[in-house]
Design a protein around this nucleic acid. Sequence first.
DNA 1: ATCATCGTCAACCGGATGGTTGAATATGCC
DNA 2: GGCATATTCAACCATCCGGTTGACGATGAT
Lengths: 115, 115
Amino acid sequence: MDDRLSLTFAALADPTRRAILSMLLEDDMAVTDVAEPFDMSLAAISKHLAILTRAGLISQEKRGRVKWCKLEPAALKDPSVWMQGFGQFDPVNLDDFERYLETLLGNGAAPPEVG
Amino acid sequence: MDDRLSLTFAALADPTRRAILSMLLEDDMAVTDVAEPFDMSLAAISKHLAILTRAGLISQEKRGRVKWCKLEPAALKDPSVWMQGFGQFDPVNLDDFERYLETLLGNGAAPPEVG
DNA sequence: ATCATCGTCAACCGGATGGTTGAATATGCC
DNA sequence: GGCATATTCAACCATCCGGTTGACGATGAT
């Protein structure tokens, strides 16, 4: 399946790739630095990054000999909206939304901690 | 990968399965009826339903000789929250949230139309 | 009892996925 | 030029995935 939604969900369906995205929340990173904490070859990480790029979840820009990886959170918008089409029928989710918005307005957007 | 988040994202990474979930928004359905609109064997649909069940996105209950499939939107909560950890850094997404909440409070929750 | 219907199981197939290793391609440094 | 660093490419491997078909087990109808 090569439609965007499928590509994005598939890209997210791997803990290594989700960990990479979390790392990139902090800051842009070089491929080598992304690979460092993982017990896996650089080539494997390079493939994961290619998949994330194809899904639009990150972008890669080569400056000198190092390729910088940058998070592209906008790519999560469509999947998120798609899911809300279901979530809205669940009252629990509505509560979450309200709490989330209060968090935002209240103390300046602390990220929800979720595995 | 057999952690919940991976299972759920993987389950969503297939257009047939997303279509099934959309169908189940309308009402609970028997397996045969779920399969009807698809150009694919019943066994294939049965497998898709098993994957959705394993991810917790639907539940199946056998009554008589027909097995009813029921949407379980709560399973979308964790993935949704996980994504919000990224989305909140994207101002466009915040606008969406506010608009969404206004929609809710205003006219009684019209579903966001997204393919 | 027999027959049709509902759904899954088992075996198979081709193609994708996630990983490895070793060679190859840039690029930067001296 | 020559060497080290950064990253990808290519080939390979085992496993998973999405689909098929045919047989099978349950259940309901006559």
